[in-house]
Computed example of a mutant assay.
Amino acid sequence: MLFRKKKEKKPSTIAMMDSKINEDYVEEKVTKIKDEDVEIVMNNEEAISEKLSNASPLRKYAELGKIMFAMLKDVKKGNYPNVPWFTIASIAVALLYVFNPFDLVPDFIPGVGYIDDLAVLSISMGWIETDLHKYLDWRLAETEKA
């Protein structure tokens, strides 16, 4: 047989205590994002960036956070059009989730407090990676024009 049947994709799941974060959970949150939620993210940029930089498990996402904020700003200003709403909403969900200290696993619990934040960030990054690369390519082209 030359062609194989595709395996059924199982949602990635990170189990923590009695709660689970999976793609369905994050996607449900993304579909509920409104413009006001994106504004909350933008208004709390400094606090979110500080949390990403200072929490050692989240530190690897600090640079990605800067890119996501830059992308949101360029979209808001109209400099970078044609971004799917799903991408904007995914960024907002990921950053709002990181910003919230009382999420599924509260951040103040030593050792496991950031596992759920990492899960949401990882799932969101998987969905929007292509759009982030396109944005970075666009920024590079804009920089070369100047």
Rank of each mutant, 00 (worst) to 15 (best):
M71F: 01
T87P: 04
G113S: 09
T13F: 00
V93W: 06
A92M: 09
E23I: 14
S53G: 08
P101R: 12
R59M: 08
K32P: 01
K34D: 01
N100Y: 08
A119R: 08
A15N: 11
E142G: 03
V30W: 02
L58F: 09
K9E: 11
G65M: 05
N22I: 11
F108D: 06
K29V: 03
I128R: 05
F108R: 15
A141M: 10
R4I: 02
K77T: 07
M1Q: 12
A62V: 08
L118M: 12
V105Q: 09
I123T: 04
E50W: 05
E39C: 06
N43Y: 02
Y97W: 07
L58T: 13
V105G: 02
I91L: 06
D116M: 06
D131S: 13
V93T: 15
A146H: 15
N44S: 12
M68Y: 01
E142K: 14
M42Y: 00
E142S: 13
K10I: 10
E23W: 09
F86S: 13
S53C: 03
V105P: 01
K29M: 12
K145W: 07
F3Q: 09
K73P: 00
G113C: 05
S12M: 10
E45S: 06
P106L: 04
I128E: 03
V83E: 00
N22T: 12
T87R: 12
S56Q: 14
N79T: 12
M68Q: 14
T130D: 04
L64C: 00
E39H: 11
V38Q: 10
M1C: 01
K77V: 15
P11Y: 05
N44T: 13
D117R: 15
N82T: 03
I91Q: 08
R4Q: 10
A89R: 07
K34W: 00
V38E: 05
L96T: 09
V105T: 14
P110Q: 08
D116W: 03
D117F: 01
L96V: 07
L72W: 03
Y80G: 03
Y80E: 02
F69T: 12
S19Y: 07
D74A: 08
N82I: 04
M1N: 11
T13N: 04
F3G: 00
A47D: 08
M42I: 14
Y25E: 10
M1D: 05
Y25R: 13
K76F: 02
E144G: 00
S122A: 15
P84K: 15
S124D: 02
E8I: 15
E23S: 07
L136Y: 03
I123A: 05
P57H: 13
K77R: 14
V120N: 02
V26F: 00
L96A: 03
E144Y: 10
S90C: 04
E28C: 02
K29T: 05
M16R: 13
E63W: 04
M16H: 09
N100P: 06
K76D: 04
N54I: 03
D116E: 07
M16N: 04
V41I: 15
F108W: 12
A94T: 07
N82R: 14
I48A: 05
F108G: 00
V38W: 06
N82V: 00
V75C: 01
L118G: 13
W138A: 04
M16F: 11
W85F: 05
